[in-house]
Structure formats: structure tokens, C-alpha cells
């Protein structure tokens, strides 16, 4: 008789023969995403006095391969907020479909008679702050399921007091806010440039739309120079009280690669 605790409650091998393990599942436990596959790089965003500017390039990389060159990584929510996606592109597409459903549900709740004719959202619809809170709960829930959505998100728009709103969420559900934000490489390459433009809320509140767009374009250029997972085609969006203006096929202007001549230490040069 086998008295080992492991054998308690099991059919006895000496009576029924050895257990046929082939009935057990061989697939093993569920394997959630362990690392992103097709990825988007930086998203950058900065506040100005009337709203927020956000930009991201149109590249989806497969490892170091520039695999898809027309992937739009900024999306508009209810004509009043913008969301920028860094990280895994399939998870971005999942979130995009999820947000479409949320937008439809929200539209059902609205009385058509209260919808303004200028295309802006009626009072009481989800604003950027509400959307950010919702996405934070979603991301944190997924991390607690040990199946995170492998993205870092920037959410921009207006809050309940119609003030410019900008905040970030990562794959762990961590959130923070700042007058300027960047994901991925942008946090190292673009943030210093954007902080020169506005390092405090007060400074951001004194900046104009044109200044903000100019800085965003400059940052996209620097990112293209120095981030090997970037592209010269990018999307840029501006959100204000009047709604969202989104351009999805912009090309970097006035590039100068003169500095590249002076780079030494790797590559084919011999000096």
C-alpha cells in the first residue's frame, strides 16, 4: 500500500494500473503576452493655453524591421479627446475597437436634441479626464489578470472645467500627468525639448497653439534623427474647445542630416 500523501484519494496503482497521463492536457497554462511584437514607438503631447497638441509617427515595427509604414497611432474619441498609443499594435487595435463600443454606448445615452450642430460633444459626454480614468481602470484590471495590454497611452482633451487635460497610462495602470508628456524613447529625447517650451502648468498656459505645434514638429524631427524605430511620416492632432483637428499623413520638413557626418565610433568610417 502506498501511504505517501501524494497518493491519497487516488486509484491505487497496484489495483488499477498506473495512471494514464495522456488524458491530461499537454498544452500547459494559458500564456499571456510576455512581450510586445509589432510595436509603435514614441507618442508626444504638450499643452498650450487653449488645448493640447499630440503627435506620433506612422510606423509599426516588427522588432527592428520597419514593417508597416502607414499605421495611424492617434485616435479621436467622441470628437472631443485624443488618445495616442505607444507599444504593441495589436493591443492598440483591441483598445481601438473597445473604445468604438464605448463611444456608441455613450452616444445612446445622449438626447439628440442636446447635440450641438458644430460637431462638438454635448454636455455630459465623457471628457478626456473621464476617459483617462476609465482606461486606467481597464489597464490596471488587465495587469491584475496577468494579461496586460502592452501599451503606454497618452490621453488629451479637456476636463470637466473645460481646462486642457493631458495624462498618461502605462501597461501596469500607472498614471501621471504633466504639461508635456512623451512615451518610449520620446521621454528621453523629446521631453527635454518640450520642457524648454513649458516646464510648468503656468508656462504651458501662456503658450499658443502655433508655438505648441512648432515644438511638436521639432520633437518629431529629433526623434526621427535619433530613434532608429521611427519614421518621417507622422500624425499630429490638436484638441481644443472647438473639437479635434487631426492630420494623419504629415511629412517632416527641413531635415538636415549634416550632423551625421560628424558621428564617429561605429559604422564604416575608418578614422
Amino acid at each position: 500500500m502506498d501511504h505517501r500523501p501524494q497518493a491519497w484519494g487516488r486509484p491505487r496503482d497496484d489495483v488499477y494500473g498506473a495512471y494514464d497521463a495522456s488524458y491530461l492536457q499537454t498544452s500547459g497554462p494559458k500564456n499571456a503576452t510576455q512581450s510586445p511584437v509589432v510595436t509603435g514607438t514614441s507618442v508626444i503631447a504638450l499643452k498650450f493655453k487653449d488645448g493640447v497638441v499630440m503627435a506620433a509617427d506612422n510606423l509599426a515595427s516588427y522588432g527592428s524591421l520597419a514593417r508597416f509604414t502607414d499605421v495611424k497611432r492617434l485616435r479621436v474619441f467622441l470628437d472631443s479627446s485624443i488618445i495616442g498609443f505607444g507599444g504593441d499594435v495589436s493591443d492598440m487595435q483591441y483598445l481601438d475597437r473597445h473604445l468604438n463600443e464605448l463611444a456608441i454606448d455613450e452616444a445612446y445615452d445622449n438626447d439628440p436634441s442636446t447635440v450641438p450642430s458644430d460637431g462638438t460633444s454635448p454636455p455630459g459626454t465623457l471628457n478626456a479626464a473621464n476617459l483617462h480614468k476609465y482606461l486606467q481602470k481597464l489597464m490596471y484590471k488587465r495587469r491584475n489578470d496577468f494579461d496586460p495590454l502592452w501599451n503606454q497611452l497618452l490621453v488629451a482633451g479637456l476636463d470637466a472645467d473645460a481646462k486642457p487635460y493631458l495624462a498618461s497610462i502605462d501597461l501596469r495602470g500607472t498614471t501621471f500627468t504633466s504639461p508635456t508628456l512623451a512615451t518610449g524613447f520620446g521621454s528621453a529625447l523629446a521631453q527635454p525639448i518640450m520642457r524648454r517650451y513649458a516646464s510648468t502648468e503656468e508656462q504651458a498656459a501662456s503658450r499658443t497653439r502655433e508655438e505648441a505645434i512648432e515644438v511638436a514638429k521639432e520633437c518629431m524631427k529629433v526623434l526621427y534623427y535619433r530613434d532608429a524605430r521611427s519614421l518621417d511620416r507622422y500624425s499630429i492632432a490638436v484638441v481644443t474647445k472647438e473639437g479635434v483637428e487631426l492630420k494623419q499623413d504629415e511629412l517632416l520638413e527641413r531635415q538636415s542630416w549634416a550632423f551625421a557626418e560628424r558621428i564617429r565610433g561605429y559604422g564604416t568610417q575608418t578614422v
Partner: peptide
Amino acid sequence: RLTYGRNMPVRS
């Protein structure tokens, strides 16, 4: 309030 950070619309 927890998921959206706002007052629930009365009609919903």
C-alpha cells in the same frame, strides 16, 4: 464614480 470619475448621468 469609480470608473469614470464623474457623477452618473441621472437618465442612465
